[in-house]
Design a protein around this nucleic acid. Structure first.
Length: 155
DNA sequence: GCCAACGTTGGC
DNA sequence: GCCAACGTTGGC
């Protein structure tokens, strides 16, 4: 079982939406590197939910990969902001996974905390200007994150 | 294949 | 609003 970090803007789709929905299609990925990471995901992998473009940004909880290798329907939807006119149904360019809500962490693990604890090599999300919305997380980094999440007490 | 221009993400 | 990082596009 592998670990991942997946970003989303809480105003667009945050962990509270996922808790409400139970599961969701993680669609709209339009970056080849992120897509290729998604393609290596396996059912049962776990992903840290990262809230970006918010104050402060950071990791808010955990989710689980339910299905992989799904075609992203938004690429064929002309009304979607993720519509890709160059993608043809006989050769879809973008795919996605289905994720399941696992839990909120008791408190936010802020980007500041992550920067204090991890190097760029250990957890690339701490690098300034990192735009990749899906990143692998090593087992050792995941263990530290899970430990951090449980040791922090809500205020 | 090179590279300049441009666009996007996302922190601050 | 600014800017760092970096992917994409298109001319050549």
């Amino acid at each position: 079982m592998a670990f991942w970090l997946m970003k989303s803007e809480p105003d667009v789709y945050g962990i509270d939406h996922l808790q409400r929905d139970g599961t969701t299609l993680w669609d709209g990925i339009r970056n080849y590197q992120a897509r290729n990471f998604m393609r290596t995901m396996a059912v049962g992998d776990q992903a840290f939910f990262y809230h970006s473009n918010t104050k402060p940004p950071g990791i808010v909880g955990l989710m689980e990969v339910m299905e992989t290798g799904l075609t992203d329907p938004s690429q064929f939807d002309p009304t979607s902001k993720y519509h890709d006119p160059r993608s043809k149904p006989e050769a879809p360019r973008w795919d996605c996974v289905r994720l399941r809500y696992l839990r909120h962490f008791p408190t936010l693990i802020t980007l500041d905390q992550l920067r204090g604890r991890f190097s760029v090599e250990e957890l690339p999300v701490v690098r300034q200007g990192n735009r990749l919305s899906i990143l692998p997380v090593s087992d050792s980094s995941a263990a530290i994150l899970l430990e951090l999440a449980t040791s922090q007490t809500p205020c």
